[in-house]
Structure formats: C-alpha cells, structure tokens
Amino acid sequence: MAVLCAAVTLAGGLVALGQDLYGPRAVAVVVLLVVAGASAVLLVVRGASLPRRVLGGLVHTGGVGIGLAQLVPQEPQAALAITALLSLVVVEVSYFFPAAWVRRHMPALVLLSNGTLLLRGDVHVGYVLAIDAVLLALGLVTSQLAERALGAHRDPLTGLPNRRSSDDRLQALVAAGGTFSVALLDLDHFKEVNDTAGHEAGDRVLLRVARLPARVLPPGAVLARQGGDEFVLLLPGRDGDQAVVDVWRVCDALAGIGLSCGVAQHQPGDTVAQLMRRADGALYAAKSAGRGRVELAAATGTPA
C-alpha cells in the first residue's frame, strides 16, 4: 500500500508538471501530493499495526482526493490522466482487503471518484461510464485472484496464516538473524469440548483465539494456526523473557480458554527445526506441570 501511495504521488506530480497551475489550482495539487506522500510514510512506519478501519479511511481519502484533483486541470486530457491514478487505488483495495469489503465499497468508490469528471462538463458521459466499467472489472478480477492466492496460505476456518505461511515467515526470520522468539500455544482439554459440546462449539473456541485483539500483541507479531488446537506466535524483536510476558498477556485476554504454552528464543545457529523442537519441548513441560502454564525453553533445549 505504501508503494502505491508513493506511486500516486509520483504520477500526480508528473501530471502537474504539464499544467500551468496558479492560485487555488496549484494549492489543490500540492495538498493532494502531500496527503499521498504522508500516507505512504504512515504506512511504512505504522502500516502493520493500523486497524482495518484506518486503512479503509486512507483508501477512501485517496479516492476522494483523486476525484477532486480531476477538477484542477483545465484540459480534459489531463483530467483523464489523473483518473488513471484511480486504477492504483482499485488494485490496492482489491489486493489488501477482503473480497466482501471490495464488493461492498468498490462501486461507490469508483462512481464517486469519477463522478467529478461529469461536473467538468467537457468530458463525455460515455467515457466516464466506460472507465468505470473497466475499473470495476479490474477490481473484481484482482480481488478474486488475490483471494485464491491467499487461500493457499490461510487457514479456512480462522482466516489466520496456516502452517505453510508461518513456516515461510519463520524461515525468513531465521535467515535474517537478530533477536526473536516463537511460542507454541495449545488449547487445554480441547478434545473434551468437541466430544461433549460438539465440533461447532470447538470451532467457536478456535475463532475466539483467532480474533484476539491486535492491541494484545506487540507490533510485528504473527499469530498462525498450526492445525487442530495448536497455534504458533512469532515474536520478532522479542527475547525469551519478553516473549513470556507477551504470551501471558495473550492468556489473560483469552480468559476462560485454558492454554499451555511453550516459548523458545532463537539462538545463533538455530535452524527452524531446532527452534521449533525447543518450543515443543517447553510446551510439553507446561502440560506436564499441570497445564495452564507458560514455559521458556533454555538454549540447551530443556525448559528453563
């Protein structure tokens, strides 16, 4: 998203270079470029921790900004060139937001953004409708392709990253080096929930874990479902002691759901298999000690 915001800034600047803009028109162009550039910086610095509604607000702001910018240039060709920037917003929305959100918001975003072209009076309505049709088709097709690609890396029930995705991210963390920790979270007595209350009740428990509020986790943390009743929590930049505090915070946020957790800090030279083996050993120790505990694995492979 940050790259696309930066692209809007660059493209908008190139369009502005070809115009003789003075007074309010020049101010409008400057404001548009500043907003797009500031959005790019915000997404680079805080993008991973921003709530969905804030990201959605940035998208709508970009669409409205492009719509207003269409009124700035005197020539209709320049206004249509600015309309091309909307294709970047469409791709951004289609790729980064759920398909249901795209279907709900895309038509209004496109029609409202391009509706300003009709206010100019020098752009034929047929051109506007043709552009809208192409943008809507682009958005829907991109959304479907992104959803299919994402499905290979998402757990179908919870929507969390699956084992394949978490393994890829863990491999990247190991390759990058630096300080990070991994935690395995296992639901206590989950089989009993399925046996006594049914699988739907078990699914509700899994979904509650998946909907853990983002504020509970530190920036950059990744919660994924390994399969069954086991989850993995990747904690970049956190040493073992910090990770234990983070995991206890998760346990407190999921009060009523019993969790046994094993934490391991990455050690220089650790492979993914070695790191996960130590985390699994700590998880086993937590279960053996009575469940409902968080255990930290020592570097030697035994729980601390």
Rank of each mutant, 00 (worst) to 15 (best):
A2E: 01
V3I: 12
L4V: 15
A6C: 07
V8Y: 07
T9H: 06
L10W: 13
A11F: 14
G12D: 08
G13C: 00
L17I: 00
L17M: 00
Q19K: 04
P24Y: 09
R25I: 08
R25C: 09
V27R: 09
V29S: 10
V30L: 15
V30C: 14
V30R: 14
V35R: 13
A40S: 09
V41L: 13
L42T: 15
V45L: 14
R46I: 04
L50Y: 04
R52F: 04
R53F: 12
L55A: 12
L55T: 09
G57M: 04
V59H: 12
T61R: 13
L68Q: 08
L68C: 08
Q70E: 11
P73Q: 08
P76C: 01
A84R: 14
L85R: 00
L86I: 06
S87R: 10
E92Q: 12
Y95K: 15
F96R: 14
A99L: 03
W101D: 09
P107S: 14
A108F: 05
A108D: 08
L109A: 05
L112R: 15
S113W: 10
S113I: 08
L118K: 01
R120T: 04
G121V: 11
D122M: 11
D122K: 10
V123M: 05
V125H: 15
G126C: 14
Y127W: 15
A130H: 15
D132K: 05
A137R: 14
L138C: 03
L138G: 01
G139Q: 03
S143C: 01
A146V: 02
E147S: 08
R148M: 05
A149Y: 10
L150F: 13
G151V: 02
R154S: 13
L160E: 06
L160Y: 07
P161I: 02
P161V: 03
R163H: 14
R163Q: 12
R163P: 11
R164F: 03
D168F: 05
L170Y: 10
Q171V: 15
Q171K: 13
V174W: 08
G177F: 08
G178P: 07
F180Y: 04
F180I: 05
D186W: 03
D195W: 04
G198F: 06
H199E: 10
R204D: 08
L207F: 01
R208E: 06
R208L: 04
A214R: 05
A214K: 03
R215N: 15
V216C: 09
V216F: 10
L217T: 00
P218C: 02
P219I: 00
P219Q: 00
A221V: 06
A221T: 06
A224M: 00
G227F: 13
E230R: 02
E230C: 02
F231M: 06
L233H: 00
P236N: 08
R238W: 10
R238L: 12
R238H: 11
Q242N: 02
V245W: 11
V245N: 12
D246K: 07
V247C: 09
V250Y: 03
A253R: 10
L254T: 07
G256S: 06
G258C: 02
C261I: 07
A264C: 06
H266S: 09
Q267E: 08
Q267R: 11
P268L: 02
A273R: 13
Q274E: 11
R278H: 13
R278Y: 12
R278S: 12
A279T: 09
A282L: 01
L283F: 04
Y284L: 09
R291V: 01
R293I: 03
R293S: 06
E295L: 04
A299C: 00
T300Q: 15
P303G: 14
A304R: 11
